[in-house]
Amino acid sequence: MTEAPRGHAGLILLLGSLTAIAPMSIDMYLPAFPALQATFATDAAAVQRTLSVFFIGLALGQLFYGPLSDRYGRRRPLLVGLALYTVASAGCALAGSIPQLMCWRGLQALGGCAGVVMARAVVRDVFGPREAARVLSSLMLVMGVAPILAPMVGGWVLAHAGWRALFGILVAFGAATWVAVARGLPDTPPAARATTLTVASVAAAFGRVARHARFRRFAGAGALAQCVLFAYIAGAPFLYMQVLGLSPTGFAAMFGLNSLGLIAASQINRGLLTRETARDVLSRALVLQILAAALFVVLARAVTPGLFRLAGPVWLVVLLLGFVLPNTTALALAPFDRDAGTASALLGSLQYGTSGLATLVVSAAFDGTLRPMAVAILLFVGGAWVLATRRIPAQPDL
């Protein structure tokens, strides 16, 4: 592991920008769905597929960048990915049909996912395990703020300049991030740089990571925690607008309140890690999350649901993700010096892949009530607790 620089603010800001690529590319164009439908004279399902393609590219593309970054360093593969992201964003802005937009969105995801992989890998390269969890908590600010600000910015730009301008903003953001990486990102030298990159060596690297007991334990817990987040996102419109009768403005306010809770928890987590281990914080957070999820299951069966009775447990479940997600990520990546990029890639693909499947399962089980969403969240949280607290061979506390 390389020595951490004395001043971390600039590096963390740059890593935050890389982390922001995915949420900005997803959340900012959501208000444009009706406009896209009108422009291309198509149905809502076709527009929705432009989002699905992005998620698929985001999950699969990470597997490509991890081994490359372990062989060639973090900066060069990242610059290639950012260049692809920027060009693909321009293609999205110029798309003349839904199939063209889907194609460009897929390429945009394949480029942008480099930022997701490299941000985690650089944190693992530069910081020790406990400090890495604190830095990842700082990066959670991005994940919490993006769902609040990106749709607002997207709606304003859409009203004043049209949907193509949204992708123009992403072109500018991608280009600016490319320049910042080229000038300011330290190229942390991976231990495996001298290894020849072959199919066999890549398979061996993924095998080493997948066989590691600690990785399986905490990556699995983190993937299930991500499933909780996606199940909440998928079910939130039904919960707040149909069950609780809130207006779109009220829905946005509740969604923002939950995001603020996630942000606050991630920053409290940074403070706790100065005196407690990541595993201790994680274990307690998961116990509280199980209790909140169980309460949600009980209240979801109520004949006359109330705003505070239902929204309260959901708010607590989402808030506690601010403790769970950064700590599971740091603990999963902690054992890897040689294969940090590969581990980061496998972790990200596992998270997005399982979350996508979980969303499909929850949607298929929908019966017009909150029960499928509530039960799914409880099962995901319970599974995360089982994995995170399972005994593995003794290793130093992190």
Rank of each mutant, 00 (worst) to 15 (best):
T188A: 03
P190R: 00
A191R: 05
A191P: 00
L197A: 03
L197F: 02
S201L: 02
S201E: 02
A203D: 11
A204E: 12
G207W: 10
G207V: 13
G207H: 11
R208Y: 05
R208Q: 08
A210V: 04
H212S: 08
H212K: 11
A213N: 14
R214E: 14
F215M: 03
R216M: 06
R216V: 07
R216H: 05
F218C: 07
F218R: 01
A219K: 01
A219F: 03
A221Y: 07
Q226S: 13
Q226A: 14
F230Q: 08
F230V: 14
F230L: 12
A231Q: 06
Y232K: 04
I233G: 11
I233Q: 13
A234C: 08
G235V: 03
G235M: 02
A236P: 06
F238H: 06
V243N: 07
L244D: 05
G245C: 00
G245W: 00
S247V: 04
S247D: 04
P248E: 00
T249D: 10
T249M: 14
T249F: 12
F251L: 01
A252T: 00
A252S: 09
F255W: 01
N258S: 06
N258C: 14
N258F: 09
L260E: 12
A264S: 08
A264P: 07
A264V: 05
Q267W: 03
I268D: 08
N269I: 09
G271L: 07
L272I: 04
E276H: 15
E276T: 15
R279C: 15
R279L: 15
